[in-house]
């Protein structure tokens, strides 16, 4: 009989390296020594769990979760939906997905953001939800705008939504960014290009999903998120040794 075991090794050649010289902030924030590789123990296989008492149903609707009564934020109305899967293709149910983003003008509701595009009084810019039993999640929001940032003197971030996911164990913890199909800024972004493999970059570009669009109302993008898979322990020594 097999039981759930350790997570598959993280493919560090698929992820960006810590040091990526064209993303300048990484230069002084990247460890210089090699990471110490650990086989998973209970500390890595376990992780926090969340339930419906932690969040509210409105939390996944960025069009209404900060808007004043009867108003809504400016911008293209979109649905972002998809599944959280593991590398075995199995759904990851009941896991917390949190997102944050700029408004349609490319401005964040953050006291440290000084970009001249205006704050939208009806847009907070964050949402959260739990995946269902099939690993499915969805948000409603407005499409974020591109914005300039200080790296090279004329760098612009492509439109993107930040995504945070937990999975079932702390070793699956992941933060990434979702980009949009057809955005010409993706190809030249130094943060996108910290990822060495083009196929890996493509994994972060959500496709326009006309089947999920609500006609005359809201467009949709599909974005599946993949977390590390878990090994089945077949003949190994039992992990806990008990």
């Amino acid at each position: 009989m097999s039981t759930k075991g350790e997570f598959y090794q993280r493919d560090r050649l698929w992820h960006p390296p810590a040091y990526a010289k064209d993303y300048k902030t990484s230069v002084t924030r990247s460890p210089q020594y090699a990471l110490i590789s650990l086989q998973n123990s209970a500390s890595e296989i376990t992780g926090p769990t969340f339930g419906h008492r932690d969040i509210d149903p409105i939390d996944n609707d960025l069009i209404s979760n900060y808007a004043q009564a009867g108003e809504s934020p400016i911008g293209e109305r979109i649905i972002v939906h998809g599944r959280v899967l593991d590398e075995n293709g199995r759904p990851v149910p009941n896991t917390l997905v949190e997102i944050w983003q700029a408004n349609a003008g490319g401005r964040y509701r953050h006291k440290k953001d000084t970009y001249l595009a205006p704050i939208d009084p009806n847009f907070g810019g964050c949402g959260r939800t739990l995946t269902d039993e099939n690993g499915y999640y969805y948000f409603r929001t407005v499409k974020p705008g591109a914005y300039p940032w200080r790296n090279w003197v004329n760098d612009w971030r492509p439109a993107h939504i930040h995504v945070s996911v937990f999975g079932s164990g702390f070793a699956q913890r992941l933060i990434t960014q979702m980009y949009f199909e057809g955005d010409p800024l993706v190809a030249t972004c130094p943060i996108v290009n910290t990822i060495p493999d083009k196929a890996a970059i493509n994994q972060l570009i959500a496709a326009l999903d006309r089947n999920a669009t609500i006609p005359l109302d809201t467009m949709a993008y599909k974005f599946d998120i993949v977390l590390r898979g878990r090994r089945s322990t077949l003949f190994e020594n039992r992990l806990e040794g008990n």
């Binding site: 960006p16 990484s26 964040y108 440290k112 992941l174 933060i175």
Partner: peptide
């Protein structure tokens, strides 16, 4: 097998998503 989604930086405005009170 599927590949794990590649990581990207949390960026300077991570507070909006994970600690909005701190974002203001």
């Amino acid at each position: 097998y599927l590949k794990e989604s590649p990581s990207q930086t949390a960026g300077p405005y991570v507070h909006i998503g994970l600690a909005p009170g701190a974002a203001g």
